[in-house]
Simulated assay, not measured.
Amino acid sequence: MKSVQTEIVEGSKGAHQSSAMNKRIAIFDFILRIIAFLNTIGSAIIMGTTNETLPFFTQFIRFRAEYNDLPTLTFFVVANAVVSGYLIVSLGFSFFHIVKSKAQNSRILLIFLDAGMLGLLTSGASAAAAIVYLAHKGNNRTNWFAICQQFNSFCERISGSLIGSFIAVVLFILLILLSAITLSRRP
């Protein structure tokens, strides 16, 4: 009789420890989502407000560089804005997981949605990275000249925006792994 009671007590301790660990993971998930939101919305705002004007010979002739001159950078802004909106909505699910640490269906849904947003964010950031590389280095074979010597502020801002977006990509990978770990720990 004593062995059955000790097994029940040990089993309840293990379930309690698993539940406490799931709650800690859910809190960490919530924090990571906030950080990822700040990175994606910051990247979208920085890229969306980037422009620089340079005078050419006179005050009346000017060269202007704006993010929306290149459709790839526009896609980057839209992708980051969509992912930011998703992250705000997913904070509700993440908070739900803090309250109910044993929820599984919503975690599975978040894994799929996080993977979709990871794909969107990665495609936008990667496409923009190619354009930023051309802006910095140019391509002599196609007569695309590096514009960063002239538009230094423009290039610094779009490069900084990319860094924020790629940090969010890494955070999304961590979020997916955290959800998978939590699902694998279920009793």
Score class of each variant (00 low, 15 high):
residue 167 I to P: 01
residue 65 A to M: 15
residue 151 F to G: 02
residue 135 A to I: 02
residue 165 S to N: 09
residue 150 Q to D: 13
residue 158 I to A: 06
residue 84 S to K: 01
residue 141 R to F: 11
residue 67 Y to Q: 05
residue 76 F to Q: 02
residue 160 G to H: 07
residue 73 L to G: 01
residue 142 T to I: 07
residue 177 L to D: 05
residue 67 Y to G: 00
residue 131 I to R: 04
residue 101 S to R: 05
residue 149 Q to L: 10
residue 152 N to Q: 13
residue 105 N to T: 11
residue 179 S to K: 10
residue 150 Q to C: 04
residue 76 F to D: 01
residue 109 L to S: 07
residue 73 L to Y: 13
residue 99 V to P: 04
residue 72 T to E: 14
residue 91 L to W: 08
residue 101 S to L: 03
residue 77 V to M: 11
residue 86 Y to G: 04
residue 95 F to R: 00
residue 70 L to Q: 13
residue 154 F to W: 01
residue 146 A to E: 00
residue 129 A to K: 03
residue 109 L to F: 15
residue 86 Y to D: 00
residue 182 T to H: 05
residue 86 Y to Q: 00
residue 74 T to E: 14
residue 124 G to R: 05
residue 153 S to P: 06
residue 152 N to H: 12
residue 133 Y to A: 11
residue 86 Y to H: 04
residue 127 A to M: 12
residue 105 N to G: 14
residue 89 V to E: 03
residue 148 C to S: 14
residue 175 L to T: 10
residue 137 K to T: 11
residue 124 G to Y: 04
residue 172 F to W: 06
residue 169 V to W: 13
residue 107 R to P: 06
residue 109 L to Y: 15
residue 180 A to P: 06
residue 154 F to K: 00
residue 112 F to M: 07
residue 113 L to R: 04
residue 109 L to D: 00
residue 146 A to S: 15
residue 163 I to C: 09
residue 182 T to A: 14
residue 112 F to V: 14
residue 111 I to N: 10
residue 149 Q to I: 04
residue 146 A to Q: 02
residue 67 Y to M: 09
residue 69 D to I: 06
residue 169 V to A: 13
residue 106 S to K: 04
residue 79 A to D: 04
residue 128 A to P: 01
residue 157 R to N: 15
residue 152 N to G: 10
residue 115 A to R: 06
residue 129 A to Q: 06
residue 99 V to H: 07
residue 130 A to D: 11
residue 81 A to R: 02
